[in-house]
Design a protein around this nucleic acid. Structure first.
Lengths: 338, 338
DNA sequence: ATCATCGCTGTAATCGATTCCACGGCTCTG
DNA sequence: CAGAGCCGTGGAATCGATTACAGCGATGAT
């Protein structure tokens, strides 16, 4: 590999001058500049980012640790994060935790070893002492989507409260009364929060949320299937199942089909997190959509604010209900939401 | 950040000794070893990967450049790649080309600047002089899924020829005769190859593949939609549409629905690349499944072989047909494939 | 007793960049 | 015309690790 020394030799100047040209430092003569540029071109020289990082103590790289790459919601988020980071001159390294805390810790550690400038995390289930340590140590850090209570870093997320209220109103208008929820892991903030918002929305319609109508899932399709089977075996099964994420909704759909029931005639289905595929399922699934693009962009901006010494801010954006056909035929009025 | 010097001071030894302990070099006294380990522990020291990479000229990192992260096929591939790499002691940095050659080049370049040890690429449409240069320069490199003709690096991919023959036989058995294909970009090897295999399979049944039944797509959903609209507008529309990837199949499904037609009664649909969602569409889609896990693992192994000085080999694995209901009711015999 | 050998250790060079500091030459000012 | 100031430049220190080499004491062989 050609180094800055080779360029210097070729251009007949010192390495200092080459470096100055490359970093567009003002005090370089036009003559030296052209010679250096010519040499760079002739040799196809590219600066060694590793050496540069060692010296400057910055890598212009952000780490993104997400809980599950196979979940289209996170894939989309990752895409937007990379896009915004690139626009701001940063690269992104993604770590996939697969919803496993120890894998999450592994990625955080290797990311830190590589001296990334900042860390974007959507924490998996379970508490991680490492995460609090990292935050306390002053590593620039931002939580996105999910967060860890007690760890003092900015949070960028969507608030589903209103959308869940809209959903319940929609279900109520369709005459559905027995509503059940497949919750996410209790230890994730999003898991917990969605159940609470659901319970609250039900209360507003004077409906109860009995414990048997709360299923414990883990954000994976399989858990949605299992929980739904249990719901269907109940003496009085629910009229609608609301899954706290898209994967569990798919599992629920499986279970419902396997039981020989039809959606929405026999039972309704709704999900948190909208994904392109929901348009193509049978029937298309009513879902709560997060502003993923805005979320990803805002998270990167907040993180870069910290990295570059500005003061960041937590951001909460509203989610919105997208009515399709999985809970019953919407009225034309409701369909306009689509 | 604490450095190796701090550890040395704390343990009362030189940095050389600390380094030797960390790299489990034999000639360190047990006494020194315990003191160093204690110091490492007390200080929570972690070696600076940047400095280490500069000195040793290896990053233990692989780059993976894929054409579209939003495509579940590539997401899954990326997951397996990371998994196998981790097992072999490497990290992976993913670059998403979004099917744009210039973005692909951007990622290749930044990856190279970071001095990754090897590069895994699934090249996007269009030829990239950069890619040939990189290969010629001797950077360890492996193509996965797609490849670039004329660039001499190992290729790890699935061969769909047999599966496509199975598919055509299946369609023929169902009485379908007018079969159309939505091709990928001609410049991608997979795009080209699938059309040829399809044409050949048709010939075996004495069927022709007229030009109007070959639509030009770009592996994105929208193109599938457009091409299908054109198919449907034909005086004699095809009886089955075969999409060369999953996203275009979804677009096709949209177009068919929009035209008020039913799958499979009015028209059949099949896709290359199987994804979990195809089980849940209406109807479930018959597809050709690639052994993604094996592909990812084999690609990493081949790349690491090059990196570590062993001789790698190209790998071709068979794809297989998964019959569902989107082309007509399969006989029980065929369904066993599912 | 002497010298070679071995095990352990530290000093210092090195990787490829950035950047502080000093220096030479020039212009400008008084 | 002397001194101040500026511009462009190069030498050398530095970042945090690894590793070649040399030195040191203890041991064993002759």
């Amino acid at each position: 590999m050609t180094s800055i020394k080779d360029v210097a030799a070729q251009a007949g100047v010192s390495v200092a001058t080459v470096s100055r040209v490359l970093n567009s430092h003002p005090s370089v003569s036009p003559d030296a500049r052209t010679r250096v540029l010519a040499a760079v071109d002739a040799l196809g020289y590219r600066p060694n980012a590793v050496a540069r990082s060692l010296r400057t103590d910055q890598t212009r790289t952000l780490g993104l640790v997400i809980s599950d790459v196979l979940n289209p919601y996170f894939t989309e988020l990752a895409r937007f994060v990379e896009e915004e980071a690139r626009a701001l001159g940063y690269s992104v390294i993604i770590g996939n935790a697969d919803e496993r805390p120890e894998l999450q810790d592994h990625h955080v550690r290797t990311l830190l070893d590589r001296r990334i400038d900042g860390l974007l995390v959507s924490p998996a289930d379970g508490d991680s002492p490492l995460m609090s340590d990292v935050a306390r140590a002053g590593t620039p850090m931002v939580f996105v989507d999910r967060w860890m209570p007690g760890v003092d870093v900015p949070v960028v997320r969507a608030d589903g409260r209103l959308a869940i209220r809209d959903l319940v109103a929609h279900l109520h208008a369709l005459g559905r009364r027995r509503l059940a929820i497949i919750a996410g892991p209790a230890a994730t903030t999003t898991g917990d929060e969605r159940v609470e918002a659901f319970r609250e929305a039900l209360r507003a319609h004077e409906l109860a949320l009995p414990d048997v109508y709360i299923g414990q899932g883990d954000f994976q399709a399989d858990s949605g299937r299992r929980v739904t089977e249990r719901f269907l075996a109940l003496p009085e099964p629910p009229e609608v199942v609301f899954a706290a994420d898209n994967l569990m909704a798919l599992g629920a759909l499986d279970a419902i089909r396997a039981a020989g029931l039809r959606v929405p005639q026999d039972i309704g289905l709704a999900a948190f997190d909208d994904i392109p595929w929901f348009v193509h399922t049978d029937p298309p699934i009513t879902a709560i959509a997060q502003p993923t693009g805005e979320l990803g962009r805002a998270a990167v901006r907040a993180l870069v604010d910290i990295v570059e010494g500005r003061s960041p801010q937590s951001v909460t954006l509203p989610a919105r209900l997208v009515v399709r056909r999985s809970c019953g035929e919407p009225t034309s009025d409701q369909r306009s939401n689509l």
